[in-house]
Amino acid sequence: MTRTYTPWALLAIALALAAVYLFPLYWMYVTSLKSGSEIFANPPSFWPAAPNANIYADVWARRTMSTFLWNSVIIASGVTAITVILGTGCAYVLARYRSAWIDLGLFAILMLQVLPASVMITPLFVGFNQIGLLNYPRTAVVLAAAAKAMPFFVVLVRATFMSVPRELEEAALVDGNSRVGAFFFIVLPLARNGILVCAILTFMSAFGEYIYSKSIIQSPLLQPASVGLSGFLGPNSSDWNAIMAYSAIYVTPILLVFVILQRRIVSGLTSGALK
């Protein structure tokens, strides 16, 4: 808009802003590579004196991270599967019609979207206890977290379906498809990218799920990585290099997926979140 400063100066400012904003991530990786004494150096060093990656293997083994991460994967997969299977069809119908009933359904979905997990956990826990579901704690967490994830998924995927022209489905019907066929062979393939992005987002957020797992899963063998992290995290924690190494192992896969799919995720979000 202004001609006085060049785009390159703006780029430099942007990079500086990004550096400041992403500093916490940098700090996580740097701390994890420092020795136990270097982390308490004053002033702190912004680059480790003797980077030592052994701590990763050490934390991995000592904190039984393979078990924790495996449980995270199981829970996140279950949540994603339920959310995608049930949510996609629901989003499609909510996108296709326009009526008072649809408005009501959308309203209900929006209401569910805003329910905090901390409001739901008490009744869910007591209810699961009554029907005996607490004996299958991971299943219980998957069900609870899928209900939490679904509204957001439906809202985003609905926006994707709205961008698939209605005429394409109608053309397929006239060409000889049933509703089922037109949905699976025309509408779904065209909405595939949006659904995929939303599924990945669902997976990522379920991968980091904490409150339900913490409240419902008692056995360390079944707990996900978030609960594992909370085990040695508290106001008085001190082995920060280990905590940061654990965190780094935990989030690096998510960060990689995000960076690779950044463009798609951002465009998926922007088209859906405001609609």
């Binding site: 109608e170 053309a171 019907l173 006239v174 060409d175 000889g176 498809n177 049933s178 509703r179």
Partner: peptide, 9 residues
């Protein structure tokens, strides 16, 4: 249903 009408659009 449309698919059984044998019309093209």
């Amino acid at each position: 249903p449309p698919r059984k009408r044998d019309v093209a659009m």
